[in-house]
Design a binder for these strands. Structure first.
Lengths: 191, 191
DNA sequence: TAGCTTTCTTACCATAGGGTAAATTTTACT
DNA sequence: AGTAAAATTTACCCTATGGTAAGAAAGCTA
């Protein structure tokens, strides 16, 4: 929990009361590899701040194929924000790729922090702005780069994530099949 | 300008002083079709709220191909948020697809509103949250849908935009070539 | 309305990446 | 260590989409 508090303090001044409020609505939990926190089709109430390990969010399409939206490591938030924000059932599944530690919040309760501690809006806004920028970049990269180029970029952007992920996780993030990724890796090794 | 003020008032209580501040830092401008507001490679200082017409933001890759990030119509914001947020030169170009009216802000000045009128954070946060959700959806659609499916979805999501856009604008948004889109349209017409 | 320019369509062949399935390697379990 | 399970690689052929270029259509301008 201290990780999160410190991270927030880097961005805004956090009153002791606000800090207490955060403690009161959160729960630090340790999760084994494979644990599913949110399952496609179910109600989403929780959002998570990762302090250790690696998680991913993905959807399963009508043919049963998985598509990874996000990998989350230390200091990232993860949940199904589509569901939370549109008040629908989960379109995503969130699972632990490794043994992980996360701080769990009820999304509605966490949202309530803005009423009691408006200064928190600023922290949230900055987070969202950064997130929007990274999503814009991801979309542009997907539009203009070839699969090998996207893979190279992925390795640069997430050097630590690769240890924890299966190849088919990465493939499903890049928008290619596991077999294509394998071919790309072979070509890369030749050079 | 009233459109924007009303839109904000739907989301938060706007003090008269805050409203005045918004007026003091904004400028309503009318733009001809083809006008370029932000050009790839140049410094980005401005952000725009669209009140009439249609604009798009796109990047040009190393082969000279265009890739559309966003179409913006009435009530949307448009700029190069990658550049604004990372303090780099524009990676995007923003141009008018039709004669348009926009409200222009200096991005830094607009950001300053949060210091004087913290209640504005809430409006911004909600905007960003909605935007993040739409970007998440776009990424998932790009990963799991075929080109014809993406085109159908596009027509549903932006029925009004199609009148203003060239086919190659839409193709560059969907991540396909103009020729592929043409084939898809022919197939669709057959049914 | 004629002529120019831009956009869209069509046709051809090329290629990146997909689908299936089998072979191999790695990992996990007892 | 030995076995089973999971993940990865390889091979084969297939399909969707791309690239180039030419032709048709639509939109502007004089």
């Amino acid at each position: 929990m201290d990780e999160l508090i410190n991270k927030i303090k880097n961005s805004i001044h956090l009153r002791p009361e606000a800090e207490e409020f955060l403690y009161s609505i959160s729960k630090e939990i340790t999760l084994p590899q494979g644990e599913v926190l949110i399952r496609q089709g179910q109600v989403v109430k929780r959002t998570f701040f990762v302090t250790e390990g690696c998680l991913r969010s993905y959807c399963i399409d009508k043919n049963g194929k998985e598509h990874t939206l996000l990998f989350a490591i230390k200091d990232w938030w993860i949940s199904d924000y589509i569901a939370i924000h549109t008040d629908e059932l989960a379109t995503l599944t969130v699972e632990c790729l490794t043994k992980s530690k996360v701080i769990e919040f009820n999304a509605k309760e966490l949202d309530g922090i803005h009423i009691h501690f408006p200064e928190f809006e600023s922290y949230q806004r900055h987070n969202l702005e950064r997130h929007v920028v990274s999503l814009h970049k991801r979309i542009l990269n997907q539009l203009q780069l070839s699969a090998p180029e996207r893979y190279d970029l992925f390795l640069k952007q997430y050097p630590k994530i690769e240890q924890h992920t299966r190849n088919y996780h990465i493939a499903s993030y890049l928008g290619i099949t596991q077999q294509s990724l394998s071919r790309i890796r072979v070509e890369k090794a030749k050079k």
